[in-house]
Design a protein around this nucleic acid. Structure first.
Lengths: 297, 297
DNA sequence: TCATTGGTTTTTTCCCATAAAAAACAGATT
DNA sequence: AATCTGTTTTTTATGGGAAAAAACCAATGA
């Protein structure tokens, strides 16, 4: 049966909201809350019932008066606020990381279901989705085959990645000078500079900045297929992030420098210069990915 | 519950096999049959039981003697030999083609399940897969949204398609002269010539030849992501094939000519010449796709 | 000795049931 | 009139189970 994790998540969010308001104040209409929490009114009403039952609010005609502020014990634990699909995704990633998943290895959905404590339907759905990352193969009536996080995979991935990146960058410099993306680029440049200054402490923050930067480039000329492919890249980075800690600080520092050169190339609007900087960065990224693959073996 | 369509399909295939053998002859071992039908021995055994029960074969120790040849009534009807997944796929395609699926329209999985006479799980699985074609969007806990077979879609599709095709073609001419792909190219060239000669009668056969040709180009340097993308293209062609009948013969004739020029370009191994021919073909394809989109509106 | 066959155990495919959540509808309130 | 709330209808998410198919293992016979 469907879990009520959304309810619990919304309930927790609502508690946060209550905490910001003064006692005796009104919480607003159901519609307003639904918009604020980004859920349906049905869920809001369930939450309101819950809040009332917990004595946090009192409903008086149409007013929802705040009776007391929430205590930490009022919150649902985080473990209960994530959907089965999300749980499966996380567990599967963790499983793949530590489990010795060799190329060609079979994966039993049933077995995973047992290990993860979920139904095979949930696993099946996830494996189906995951197969679009090119790491998993499914043949009808047969078992799942893990194709492996191999050099071949990395080569194929980077090849497409480079094509897409170069194309988007080329489109970016053709952008109108008034485009808001230029300002966004300025902001991201500043963040790069700031991060570089403090690289010793904050080098782990690069990963997120990296994604934001590349997805900004893609926005120059949106293409759903490239966006979908970008998800694959994000997954890979998430995936091999943990066993790629060696020299992480140094690698990230280099990457930031390269990004900055790349950004300057974009801002110069000089194709030659931009392409050169972009290529340099892509080459480093490819080499770094391939090297991490060797480590793995 | 799981359907036994594979069994029935295999049974029919086995009947074909029986028909080619002489009465009293042996059908071979279970393993041989399994390999021939590309199914597991379990299924083969079920089929053999079926054949025995129908009096087609008699099992005598290890020999499976053919007692009589199959009659048309021995076969299972075609409708019973396709898996639920395949049925759903076909019905969904048909539904999308004639149903007025406008961009932004919501799709109810439950409703489709009722219409198609299948379970909602089967529909759900298919919609999930279909969403990777970029025509369908899904947000958690929310409805499916048909993004629409719009010009935007066509633009984004062709952009990627052209990048991939040009890249593969460039790799193709770098292929070693001894590569078997060159012979394959020769064969496909001949088939183009043959088809062109008989274009009046056989113009519908072009679609399949087209796919074979482009997938051969891709084989020069296999890339799983490009292959996956190729599936999207195939789907689109299948999808808009029926309402694209206008001038089909003429369009196909032109396409064959362009293919031939493209093939000559490849064989010349002259990048300039090949790229020019390839671009010409891609431009025509893009224009033709966009035009069919206008018709639709 | 080794391919072949007979049982047994997993695994996948598929439908059904049901709680949760969204959406639609309708009446009430400001 | 427009917003808000109460109620009903749809739709999605997820577990569970049964049959089919595959995989595995043991026994048999040529």
């Amino acid at each position: 049966m469907k879990t009520n994790t959304l309810y619990k998540r919304s309930y927790n969010q609502c508690l946060d909201l209550v905490a910001t308001r003064t006692l005796g104040g009104d919480l607003g209409s159901e519609n307003e809350l639904a918009a604020a929490l980004d859920v349906s009114r049905t869920t809001v009403r369930a939450v309101l019932d819950g809040l009332t039952a917990a004595g946090l609010i009192g409903i008086d005609k149409r007013a929802k008066r705040i009776l007391r502020h929430p205590a930490p014990t009022d919150y649902y634990p985080d473990t209960e606020t994530e959907s089965v699909a999300t749980t499966v995704e996380k567990k599967f990633m963790a499983w793949i990381q530590q489990g010795d998943c060799k190329p060609g290895q079979h994966i039993s959905g049933l077995d995973l279901a047992r290990q993860f404590g979920t139904s095979n339907s949930a696993i099946r759905e996830h494996l189906n989705q995951f197969s679009y990352f090119g790491l998993l193969e499914r043949r009808p009536n047969s078992r799942w085959v893990f194709r492996g996080f191999t050099e071949e995979f990395a080569e194929e991935l980077t090849e497409v990645r480079e094509m897409f990146e170069l194309r988007s960058a080329r489109r970016f410099i053709e952008l109108d000078a008034k485009s808001p993306l230029w300002q966004e680029l300025d902001r991201i440049e500043e963040q790069h500079v700031a991060l570089l200054k403090d690289i010793d402490q904050r080098f782990m923050e690069f990963s997120e900045l990296d994604q934001r930067f590349h997805s900004l480039i893609n926005e120059a000329a949106p293409n759903r297929f490239m966006e979908m492919f970008f998800d694959v890249i994000s997954m890979v980075f998430h995936y091999h992030y943990p066993w790629n800690k060696r020299d992480e600080k140094e690698r990230n520092a280099v990457a930031i420098q390269e990004h900055l050169a790349y950004i300057r190339g974009l801002k110069s609007r000089d194709p030659e210069r931009m392409m050169a900087a972009c290529r340099t960065h892509l080459d480093t990224a490819r080499a770094s990915l391939l090297r991490s693959m060797e480590v793995r073996r």
